[in-house]
Design a protein around this nucleic acid. Sequence first.
DNA 1: GTCATGGTTCAATGCTTGTTAAACTATTAA
DNA 2: TTAATAGTTTAACAAGCATTGAACCATGAC
Lengths: 95, 95
Amino acid sequence: MTRMSRSAAAEHRASVFKALGEPTRLRIVDYLRSRTRDATGTEIAAHVGISLALLCHHTDELVECGLLTKRKEGQTSLWHLNGDRLAATVAHFVD
Amino acid sequence: MTRMSRSAAAEHRASVFKALGEPTRLRIVDYLRSRTRDATGTEIAAHVGISLALLCHHTDELVECGLLTKRKEGQTSLWHLNGDRLAATVAHFVD
DNA sequence: GTCATGGTTCAATGCTTGTTAAACTATTAA
DNA sequence: TTAATAGTTTAACAAGCATTGAACCATGAC
């Protein structure tokens, strides 16, 4: 995050919270946090108990707000949790 | 928070993030955090730039998820930010 | 080539949510 | 009692969102 107006920063911070404010997405993030290695789509979908189609939808939103990054290896996709972004967003509320 | 199942706790945590995931509500919380004393409805509404009716709607949701508490003094209402609840929700993401 | 696997996109559906304006209650002031 | 202030509730509307199933596109195995 290089430079950003105060309100734009607030909007962005809100978009991260919004992404976390959906139980399924929160479980995706929690699952990724519980692991050491990045996870494939099938792994996440199975663990969270949703279809791949729905996973795609949710990960799109998590990627959009910068919480996740995606990388392709052959036909499988690997998702990585951006811990720094998460910590930075939350840092506003830690004294 | 006395006792709660793992999934119920996750749902509740999500509800807090959801409340914070709306720019107007995030500004309400930020404003309350920037102050030392509790704030009246008119103060908050003026600072955030919304009507009292809309403020009522948003504070209802913030009270619902335990982030705010309300107290009445005469005809004015005073809102208090529950910093502990906020810190507890966010603590999951701080190593 | 054919087939299965892993993921993505699309369209449709129904539910939720943010916002507005108007009506309403309770308290304080004149 | 009348009027203003502070907040609440309600109804209504548009916009957004989560979910589903089907179609689609690559990649890898046979």
